[in-house]
Design a protein around this nucleic acid. Structure first.
Lengths: 228, 228
DNA sequence: CGTAGGTTTGACTGATCTCAAGTTTGGTGG
DNA sequence: CCACCAAACTTGAGATCAGTCAAACCTACG
């Protein structure tokens, strides 16, 4: 949260005073169910997760990825019903904090409140960029954009350089995130590999030509609002 | 804003005390430019507008529609750079309010602050639903969903029943909103007409079989969070 | 080892795009 | 009031991208 707003000592104390329940969950647990009434917000402490929504005919769309340190569902501070699901992509440990506590905190400590609000605004900006990605880009660009976003968000969150990392997603999940089928994802991933832009070994992804991947993915990190 | 939170008399007075500059703009004016530094937020008083973003190869994606009474860019309260553009779809009159005034108001009157935050959360929910629409639904369903959303938002905003209204968009714009070409939009609109679900005369749209349109568009209004 | 989940490949299908030409509509100036 | 023009809508034919179906192949894990 330090990245979202300048907090003073009182702010920090107020945050540390929050009561949180720590939980651990295996891969593919539903942390939040779509349509559920929610009384707690969830903070991802370790592992990866994604927001998703199902269509009437059995399709699934992944809406965003969550890294350690992300709030998964801050929207529940003011909306009492969930409009999408959140699922773990890996084993994860989370902290559940009562909505009411967060709301009171936001009121008592405006700086903290603004940090939380700002976080939800960045989530919204990411969602808008995903509309563009899925609506107006070809398959290769969509996948490249997803890789760029994940790599830079990782870096921003302090997990090291964007050139090499474990991508915690199956090709099927990449497809659900980009509006493609797993078969097509596989082929386009190979294309990116064949032209030397990326290299892969299992989940381990190596971006060999970062500027080119950015160009292919039509990526501009501005929407992540990373600068304080 | 009364729909977003319960406000008391002091809240109302504080809102009325805001200084706003009223402007009128013709069709297709850029109210907010993508990437611009922003010092004012915009409230749409009359007319229609849309948020949009351009891709590197000249494509355009419409991200959301704005009705009279909507804030167009509340994200600027806490993010100083715009990550998308806002353009009028019809002649429009707007009110510009200084970001700083809104920020101070939100701090002084928590109820108002929560109303504003809640508004941005609903915008985010709409953006997420658009990701699903554009990512995982076929052409006809995308268009049907767009019509359903516009019709219900109109109704929620108090513009009368959802069965008949003027759609303030060209088929090209419907395409930009759904990730389709105007040609394909035209064909699918005709399909909907041929099966008797809608009738059209110029921009005047008549939904003749609302339950069926909802089914075709896989529409569930829950994401609009309309109930107080 | 055996199995399930994930990846890879091929052949075929189909939805949507592209290009291109008409047609209608609404506004504007004479 | 009419003629004209630009924008929007419509239609057709052909091309392309991505989906479907189906099988084979890995590979981690029990």
């Amino acid at each position: 949260m330090e990245r979202l707003a300048h907090l003073d000592e009182t702010d920090r104390q107020a945050i540390h005073a929050l009561h949180a329940r720590i939980e651990t969950h295996p891969t593919y647990s539903m942390l939040v169910k779509d349509g559920a009434r929610v009384t707690h917000c969830t903070l991802l402490l370790d592992g990866f997760a994604c927001s998703q929504k199902d269509t009437g005919d059995g399709g699934r769309q992944i809406l965003s990825l969550h890294l350690p340190g992300d709030f998964l569902d801050l929207n529940h501070v003011l909306l009492d019903r969930s409009d999408h699901a959140v699922q773990t992509l890996t084993p994860a440990t989370i902290a559940r904090i009562a909505v009411q506590d967060l709301r009171m905190l936001a009121e008592a400590r405006p700086r903290v409140g603004q940090a939380l609000w700002r976080d939800t605004l960045i989530d919204a900006a990411i969602a808008r960029e995903w509309v563009v990605n899925v609506g107006r880009r070809g398959a290769t660009a969509r996948i490249a954009h997803l890789l760029c976003e994940f790599a830079t968000r990782r870096e921003i969150a302090g997990f090291g350089p964007p050139e090499r990392f474990d991508l915690p997603m199956t090709q099927e999940q990449i497809g659900d995130a980009t509006g493609l089928t797993s078969v097509h994802v596989n082929r386009k991933l190979h294309d990116l590999q064949d032209i030397g832009v990326i290299a892969r070994d299992r989940r381990d992804l190596h971006i060999r030509d970062w500027p080119r991947l950015i160009r292919i993915g039509d990526f501009d990190a501005a929407y992540l609002h990373a600068s304080a």
